[in-house]
Deep mutational scan, measured.
Amino acid sequence: MPVRRGHVAPQNTFLDTIIRKFEGQSRKFIIANARVENCAVIYCNDGFCELCGYSRAEVMQRPCTCDFLHGPRTQRRAAAQIAQALLGAEERKVEIAFYRKDGSCFLCLVDVVPVKNEDGAVIMFILNFEVVMEKDMVGSPAHDTNHRGPPTSWLAPGRAKTFRLKLPALLALTARESSVRSGGAGGAGAPGAVVVDVDLTPAAPSSESLALDEVTAMDNHVAGLGPAEERRALVGPGSPPRSAPGQLPSPRAHSLNPDASGSSCSLARTRSRESCASVRRASSADDIEAMRAGVLPPPPRHASTGAMHPLRSGLLNSTSDSDLVRYRTISKIPQITLNFVDLKGDPFLASPTSDREIIAPKIKERTHNVTEKVTQVLSLGADVLPEYKLQAPRIHRWTILHYSPFKAVWDWLILLLVIYTAVFTPYSAAFLLKETEEGPPATECGYACQPLAVVDLIVDIMFIVDILINFRTTYVNANEEVVSHPGRIAVHYFKGWFLIDMVAAIPFDLLI
C-alpha cells in the first residue's frame, strides 16, 4: 500500500533555474538572501570558489559584500557603492579590487542584480563577478574607477581610450546646418538635424578633445543650467548677453562664444560640459537660429522629431539603469545623424518603425519583477520565466494532490484497515475457520451469522477504491517536481505499489 509523501509542494524551481543557467555559462556568482541580516550568502558556485580561493563552506553565510576579499588596494568608495546597491532595488555595476585567499590582487567587475517577489519586494541578490585585470595590471588604489561605466561593446579594446569628441564640431553647429540641408533625401539625416562627426583615429590627448566618459557625465550638469543662461549661451556672438549692473557675465554663455574659444586653444572642462549641455537642449539648428531671432517656433511634425517616441515608452518600462547606459552608448555611435529632440514631445505622434532597438522591449506582467540581467542570462521568455513566489501546480481535472487534506485522511483510514487485516486475518484463519468446520452448517442466516465476513468484505472494497484513487494521485519525481499527468501517474504506480495493492485487495476469504 503506498505511503508516498512529498510535502515540499507547491515547489518553486526558480532558484534552481537560475543556478542551472548560470552554471551553463561558466559564470562566477553568488546568491544572497536579502531578508536576513547583512544579506548572507546562501549559494556560491564553483567558479566563484576558484576565483577567490575560498571553499564553499568558508563563503556560505558570510555577508555578500565580500568584505573578506578586501585588501589594501580595495577602494572604500567601491565598497560603499556595493553596500548601497544592496540597500536599493536597481541593478548596478561596480569595479573593485579584490584579494584572493593567497593574497593576489585582481580588479573585478561586480554586477549586483536584485530579484523581487510578486509584491515588488527584493528577496534575493545575485552578484556576478568578472575579472577585468590581474594584480600586475591593477593601478594605484588612489585612482577611482567606479565613477565610470563599463566599456562599450562596439569599441575595440585597444581603442576604448582613444575615443574623442571634438569640441569644434559642437561649436560649428550653425555652420554645418547648410551642408545638412543640402544633403536632402540623399543624406542619412532628416531636415533640421545636426550631424556630429566623431574622430576615432588614435591621437595624443589634446586640450581640444573630450573623453567619452566626460560626455556621459554632461547629463548630470544640465539641471544646474538655468533657462535664461541656456538661451544666452545659444544666442551666440551676435547678441551678447546682458548683465545687470554690478553683475558679471555668465561664464556659461561665454563658453560657447566662437570668438572667445578661437582665441585660446584650450577650454576648461567645466565650460566644455556646460556648452555641450546647452546645445543638447535645442532640438535642431533651426531652433538655434530661432533663439537668435527671439522667436522659438513649435517643433515640426516630421520623422526626426518622432524618433524618440518609442524611446520614451522603453525608458518607462525599463527595469534597470543598464538600459540608460545602453541608450547613452548607442546615442554616441560615430558617423550617424543625431536628432536633438526633447523627450517631452507630442504624445499624438505616431511611433516610426526603427531597425535598431535601443531599449529592451516591454516586459510582460509575469516578468515585471525580474531584472534585465536575470532575463538576459536565463534566456527565457515571458511565458517560461515565473515570478519568485509559491505557485500552485497546474493539475488535470479529477486529480488528487498527494499533500491535500483528503489524501491525508484517506491514508490514515487505509492504515487502520491494514492494521485490522494484519490482526484479524490470522485470527480468523486459526480459530474461526476451525469452529466453522466443526459446527453445523448455517446457510440460512447468511452474513448475519458471520459479522467478521462483512467487515472483511468492506475492507476489500476499500482497498479496491484505494487502488483507483492512487491512479489519480500526484507524486514527486526525482527532481522534486509534482507530477499531475494521468499517464505518468499510471506508469509510476504500475512500477511501484500496484502489484502489492492488488494482492492485498483480493478477497481470499470469499474465494475459499
Rank of each mutant, 00 (worst) to 15 (best):
Ala57Leu: 07
Gln335Gly: 14
Gly158Val: 15
Ser304Leu: 12
Tyr99His: 15
Leu51Glu: 07
Ile358Val: 14
Lys28Gly: 06
Ser331Arg: 11
Ala260Thr: 12
Asp342Thr: 03
Arg76Ser: 09
Lys332Val: 01
Thr270Val: 13
Glu208Lys: 01
Ala268Ile: 14
Gly345Pro: 08
Arg269Asp: 07
Phe29Pro: 01
Gly236Glu: 13
Tyr54Met: 01
Ala285Glu: 12
Ser283Lys: 03
Lys116Leu: 08
Leu170Asn: 08
Lys332Asn: 08
Ser379Asp: 04
Leu315Cys: 05
Asp46Cys: 01
Asp213Gly: 06
Ala78Val: 04
Ala282Arg: 11
Ser379Val: 03
Arg176Asn: 05
Glu37Val: 07
Ser320Lys: 09
Pro249Val: 15
Ala382Met: 03
Leu267Ile: 02
Arg273Leu: 11
Leu170Arg: 11
Ser284Lys: 07
Arg181Trp: 05
Cys39Glu: 01
Arg280Glu: 10
Asp16Ala: 15
Met133Asn: 06
Glu95Met: 13
Ile363Glu: 12
Met291Val: 14
Tyr54Gln: 01
Phe348Pro: 12
Ala217His: 13
Ile288Glu: 07
Gln11Glu: 11
Thr145Ser: 15
Ile42Gly: 01
Phe163Pro: 15
Leu69Trp: 01
Thr74Ala: 01
Ala32Ile: 01
Ala78Tyr: 01
Asp197Ala: 01
Asp16Phe: 10
Gln376Phe: 02
Gly88Tyr: 13
Thr371Trp: 06
Pro299Phe: 03
Asp119Trp: 05
Val94Leu: 01
Pro251His: 15
Glu90His: 14
Leu87Glu: 14
Ser140Asp: 06
Ser283Thr: 14
Thr367Tyr: 13
Trp154Ile: 08
Leu51Ile: 07
Glu177Thr: 07
Asp136Cys: 08
Asp346Phe: 14
Met60Asp: 01
Leu86Trp: 01
Asn33Val: 05
Arg77Trp: 13
Pro72Tyr: 01
Leu378Met: 09
Glu214Phe: 15
Phe14Ser: 07
Cys276Glu: 10
Ala382Cys: 12
Ser284Met: 09
Gly238Thr: 03
Met308Leu: 07
Glu214Trp: 04
Gly71Phe: 01
Ile19Pro: 01
Ala89Gln: 10
Ala89Phe: 14
Val36Pro: 06
Ala360Gly: 04
Ala83Asp: 10
Val110Gly: 01
Ser140Pro: 15
Val194Arg: 01
Arg20Trp: 06
Val94Thr: 14
Gly184Cys: 06
Arg164Trp: 06
Ile288Arg: 11
Val194Met: 01
Leu86Val: 08
Glu23Leu: 01
Leu155Cys: 11
Ile288Cys: 15
Pro141Cys: 08
Pro141Gly: 11
Ser318Met: 01
Val384His: 04
Val195Lys: 10
Ser351Ala: 08
Phe14Ala: 11
Leu15Tyr: 07
Pro299Asn: 08
Phe106Trp: 04
Arg27Gln: 09
Ser209Asp: 10
Leu51Lys: 01
Ala89Asn: 14
Gln376Thr: 04
Asp199His: 01
Lys364Leu: 14
Arg242Glu: 07
Leu15Val: 14
Ser351Trp: 07
Val138Ala: 15
Val370Pro: 07
Thr319Met: 07
Pro157Ser: 06
Met60Leu: 14
Arg252Trp: 05
Ile358Met: 09
Gly187Asn: 12
Ala190His: 06
Gly314Asp: 09
Gly120His: 13
Ala32Glu: 01
Leu107Pro: 15
Gly294Ser: 14
Arg292Ile: 12
Leu109Trp: 15
Leu378Pro: 04
Ala228Val: 12
Arg181Asn: 06
Ser318Trp: 15
Pro205Leu: 06
Val41Arg: 01
Leu87Met: 10
Leu167Asn: 15
Gly314Cys: 10
Leu200Met: 06
Gly224Glu: 15
Asp16Thr: 06
Ala83Pro: 15
Asp219Cys: 06
Pro141Ala: 12
Arg242His: 10
Ile19Val: 08
Leu380Gly: 04
Arg148Cys: 15
Gly88Ile: 14
Asp342Cys: 01
Gln25Asp: 06
Glu50Val: 07
Ala217Tyr: 06
Lys364Tyr: 03
Asn220Lys: 12
His254Gly: 08
Ser261Phe: 12
Leu338Gln: 12
Lys101Gln: 01
Leu316Trp: 14
Thr216Phe: 06
Pro168Glu: 13
Ser275Asn: 14
Ile333Cys: 15
Glu37Asn: 11
Glu58Asn: 01
Ser206Gly: 12
Thr74Tyr: 01
Met124His: 08
Glu177His: 13
Ala188Pro: 07
Glu214Pro: 06
Ser140Cys: 07
Pro141Phe: 06
Arg27His: 08
Arg76Gly: 13
Arg281Pro: 06
Ser255Trp: 04
Ser206Met: 13
Arg366Asp: 04
Asp67Ile: 13
Lys116Thr: 10
Thr174Ala: 14
Thr13Arg: 13
Ala188His: 12
Leu296Met: 14
Glu37Leu: 09
Phe98Gln: 01
Val222Ile: 11
Glu23Trp: 01
Val222Asn: 09
Ser331Asn: 09
Pro241Lys: 07
Ala293Lys: 15
Ser263Asn: 05
Gln81Tyr: 08
Glu90Lys: 08
Gln335Arg: 08
Ser55Thr: 07
Leu173Tyr: 15
